[in-house]
């Protein structure tokens, strides 16, 4: 598959009165056309901020992309001017957010919000845009779409609002959809609906997908590749099967062992000790070292590079100065 996006050394800082926040640190990965990539991490791991950086949506000040490139279709998105970026946003890369209520304008009809981007990016007339909007609402499974077009956001339920957001994101046939925790605010049965919907649409439209989540279960169901983030770094990345079956980062291993499983019998949960790091500390060593049971001397001295894992899949990378016991042997 052809390369769609190449993120190299992306680094984001926030300069706040309380000090510099090292939000995203040297994030490097590639994304192919049509690929489905999950980005997993806890709050403060930089997963959402890195997506905002790709979209050119980092509020500045206080934020700044201090280093790195995002090559998309031969252009570096980091270097684009705001008016150039505006043509990319929505038409080539679209984004949906966690909370559909705060992402929709409560005083505008759905039709106004949906047709705005269509008219801007695709140059359609009002009537054409409305037809396209009805098509989109049907595509995302909103019943009686033509009748709902002139409703306001509050007249939709949470799951339906997220469908409207998805319709809006897909209105200009983007090549990449970035979904930032789109199901976190939803109930589990509604989450299942949205996950199925996105899977179906991705197959139909052939777009690439970046799905940001803290839920390893959702990631396992939707992605073919995964980036695990901790303290603003990618600590492990690779094909989803390899990362889940043969994790090489102590953080990934810890997360996987700490989760209770619906399909497995009871045992005491293996807990990760300690707390996530303060992002105001400049990273000079492996940020997971204080919580890592496999920590080595070197972890305290320098940041490990994201390297190919030994005797593993060629696309499987991890940041580790240590060797982990195999998860398969442990079970």
């Amino acid at each position: 598959m052809a390369r769609l996006m190449d993120v190299n050394g992306l680094t984001v800082r926030f300069y706040t009165p309380e000090g510099t926040v090292y939000a995203v640190n040297d994030v490097t990965y590639t994304l192919d056309e049509g690929e489905s990539l999950a980005i997993v991490g806890e709050s403060g791991s930089g997963k959402s901020v890195h997506a905002l950086a790709i979209m050119g949506l980092i509020p500045s000040p206080p934020g700044k992309v201090t280093d790195g490139t995002v090559m998309f279709d031969g252009r570096d998105l980091v270097q684009l001017r705001e008016d150039e970026m505006r043509l990319v946003r929505g038409s080539e890369i679209a984004m949906i957010f966690q909370d559909p209520m705060t992402s929709l304008n409560p005083v505008l009809k759905i039709s106004t919000q949906l047709t705005e981007a269509i008219k801007l990016h695709l140059g359609m007339t009002e009537a054409q845009a409305r037809n396209r909007a009805v098509e989109l609402l049907q595509m995302v499974g909103i019943p009686a779409a033509a009748d709902r077009l002139d409703d306001y956001p509050h007249q939709f339920s949470g799951g339906m609002r997220q469908r409207v957001m998805i319709a809006m994101a897909l209105s200009c046939n983007p090549r990449l959809l970035i979904a930032d925790e789109p199901t976190t605010a939803l109930d589990v049965t509604i989450q299942a609906q949205i996950v199925e919907l996105i899977k179906r649409l991705r197959a139909e439209l052939g777009m690439a997908l970046i799905w940001i989540t803290h839920d390893l279960g959702v990631a396992a169901g939707i992605a073919d590749h995964i980036n695990v983030m901790y303290a603003g770094q990618i600590v492990e990345r690779g094909p989803i099967m390899q990362v889940f079956k043969d994790p090489r980062s102590a953080y990934t291993l810890g997360l996987l062992s700490s989760l209770p499983r619906l399909d497995l019998k009871d045992q005491r949960l293996v807990q990760i000790e300690g707390q996530p790091p303060d992002m105001r500390d400049e990273p000079t060593f492996d940020p997971f070292a204080p919580r890592n049971p496999y920590v080595t001397e070197r972890c305290w001295q320098e940041i490990p590079p994201l390297e190919n894992v030994a005797k593993g899949h060629p696309e499987h990378f991890a940041r580790a100065w240590y060797d982990l016991p195999s998860l398969r042997n442990a079970q």
């Binding site: 049965t189 299942a192 609906q193 199925e196 959702v218 396992a220 169901g221 989803i240 889940f244 619906l262």
Partner: peptide, 25 residues
């Protein structure tokens, strides 16, 4: 349907799972 909607953190299991997707709210 509630149990079938819960994601399992194992891509092999997820690949083979048959979900009951509830309609509506």
């Amino acid at each position: 349907s509630l149990l079938s909607a819960v994601p399992v953190p194992d891509p092999e299991v997820e690949l083979q799972r048959q979900r009951i997707i509830l309609g509506g709210d």
